[in-house]
Design a protein around this nucleic acid. Sequence first.
DNA 1: TACCACTATTTCACTAGTAAAATAACTGGA
DNA 2: TCCAGTTATTTTACTAGTGAAATAGTGGTA
Lengths: 168, 168
Amino acid sequence: MSHVTGPDTSDLVERIQQEWAQAYPDLDVAPIGILGRIQFIAARSSHRLDRRLEPHGVTRSEYDVLGALARSPHPLRASEVVSTTMLSGASITKITENLARRGLLVRRKSERDGRVVLLEPTDAGRELVETELPRRLADDEAALSGLTPAERESLAELLRKVSAAVHV
Amino acid sequence: MSHVTGPDTSDLVERIQQEWAQAYPDLDVAPIGILGRIQFIAARSSHRLDRRLEPHGVTRSEYDVLGALARSPHPLRASEVVSTTMLSGASITKITENLARRGLLVRRKSERDGRVVLLEPTDAGRELVETELPRRLADDEAALSGLTPAERESLAELLRKVSAAVHV
DNA sequence: TACCACTATTTCACTAGTAAAATAACTGGA
DNA sequence: TCCAGTTATTTTACTAGTGAAATAGTGGTA
């Protein structure tokens, strides 16, 4: 393991940025240093979560759905889950039918409105979320471990500004 | 269009963070404020790029491949494209065959090593990248428009630290 | 030359996710 | 009551992407 095993992935974004800069010297490629790294961190940490969830036999999307239900003080409609998870309605139908079959949540029709499906985690579903949540927070915490409390505060604030300005 | 059309998505992450905090008051959910927002920004800006590319009839993955080729001073092997794009080898085969059919890149076998496929953009492929790149940079720039030069520098540096620490 | 271990790419079979059409149920008039 | 219009979810038909097996080529060794 002492020899080079490929590009140093922690510098992948920097390398890409430099390649763009060399190929198109008249463009200001500085934004790539920020947005590219955001993409990179997001991809990596998604991947990490996938691996954490593998032993539980749930995908990240399934976990997102269960999480939304577990942190809610009341059952959610399918459409409410759509709006917090960034998944399509079609996906929510598939995923929740599947999770219901596996006993991790319960689907029932609303009595008030027969079009609506109400979703609620079972004890097993809630338990899955609760055992995995601290691990997930610990992983995220580890990613931030090189930052002082002041730096974390500053990073959170800067990201808040960016996320308010990023249009679809 | 003057009424509420859904949750204020710029605060979606904050809302989710608060929901977690209320459901599990004994956990420190602060990391979600950072990693969650990174996920959010990544998803939004990916989406935005998708829409920019739609009129050109290329997907984001296809554009990533073309970009890697366009910014390289020499043809790349399929495996080299794999390592910069985070796509699988199987995908690179499919995508590049498709782009070759559409005249945006050329695939040829290496003379030195018959296993290797060398990929190079055509003029049309390069042109597509070159017309879209400034727009993409402008979009990214717009996302950062609320930040001073010093804040951008600081954000880039903080993200560099995080990306070095985020393990798969 | 003939073989073997290794590497690069492609093929195959499959999964997750989607947009759009279809279905089912509600609401507020006439 | 009975629509017409609207809304929530499901179904359908499809696409992108994947891991693993298969294929094809290389280079070193005897």
